[in-house]
Amino acid sequence: MAGENVLVAVEGRRLQLSNLDKVLYPSDGFTKGEVIDYYSRVAPVLLPHLAGRPLTMRRYPDGVDGQSFYEKNAARHAPDWVRTVTVDTPGSSTGAETLDFAVVDDLPTLVWAAQMASLELHIPQWTVGPRGGRNNPDRLVFDLDPGPPATIVECCRVALLLREKLRADGLEPVAKTSGSKGMQLYCTVTTTAPKQAWGYAKELAEQLAAEHPGLIVARMAKNLRPRKVFIDWSQNHEYKTTVAPYSLRARERPTVSTPITWAEVESCREPGDLVFTADDVLDRVDEHGDLFKPLLRKKNPPKLTALKSR
């Protein structure tokens, strides 16, 4: 029954799961139990990308058609075994200068987040140390957002242009869909200051916008975006987060922010070519493994230098 509670043990941790039959994606009949099942099954490839990163949960207790909210302060709900870290949050809508974020380092914590109807998992481009200190960014992200009638097809064109520039700087990007209408490119980097990735991404986006003004925009103004792809460099700001690879999205169907191959980017001709649901992603992981695994290689990641120095 929808209201029944189930007590389970996950790797030695006791969790109470509730409302497993509650439909969270009405168009597909995808239930809360299926959300928990998906996250449990995708955990081997998802957890390494969440590890060490404060989690912002986007919760949908009444499903994707209901009200949602971002949950950053885990201390009010988390079991005592969930690792939390205190992070400064200047300008927070709650007025708090710090919040206690969950850090999802293991399967029990991931299942707990799914039980909270946290359909979307958002993380920053930096990790915290064992004592909670904020490390410098180790990932660079470009969020490609198409302005209608542009679609992910145009995003793929921009991704290939970005790949060329990044490779020229000694970086090796990987790509994923946003699970919504756009996509993101990521690189593993070494930085020496929090704003270094932000500055590099901004300069590169502006350079590409100048070179391809009919296709790319690097400014956030809405009136500039129709028919173009906005390269959102601001996702590298230390107080911003981006949806994690393998995270569900709160769309009509249970689509996922899905790592993709460059061959798929190059061959994309229709928006539907790069739409993947939870079931699709589990099949893809069986076939490809973790396509984002290059981001986990920690040995001598490239040092990020200013674009103007090239």
Rank of each mutant, 00 (worst) to 15 (best):
119 L>R: 01
114 A>W: 03
93 S>H: 13
158 V>Y: 02
68 S>W: 01
118 S>K: 01
89 T>N: 07
64 V>M: 01
78 A>C: 14
161 L>G: 08
75 A>T: 15
162 L>N: 00
72 K>I: 03
77 H>L: 04
76 R>N: 15
115 Q>H: 09
85 V>W: 02
54 P>H: 07
48 P>K: 05
148 P>H: 11
147 G>W: 06
113 A>Y: 02
147 G>K: 07
69 F>L: 15
96 A>M: 11
134 R>T: 08
78 A>Q: 10
86 T>Q: 14
105 D>T: 09
78 A>I: 08
53 R>D: 01
156 C>A: 10
148 P>I: 04
107 L>K: 09
85 V>H: 05
125 Q>G: 07
91 G>E: 09
105 D>K: 09
125 Q>E: 08
59 R>F: 05
137 P>L: 05
102 A>M: 09
147 G>L: 05
138 D>C: 11
78 A>D: 13
73 N>G: 06
64 V>A: 01
106 D>H: 14
136 N>R: 14
63 G>V: 00
144 L>R: 04
108 P>I: 10
122 H>D: 13
82 V>G: 00
104 V>A: 05
138 D>L: 06
83 R>E: 14
133 G>I: 03
145 D>I: 07
98 T>A: 14
74 A>K: 01
82 V>Q: 00
124 P>K: 03
48 P>C: 07
125 Q>D: 09
58 R>M: 05
148 P>G: 08
126 W>R: 03
96 A>S: 11
160 L>R: 14
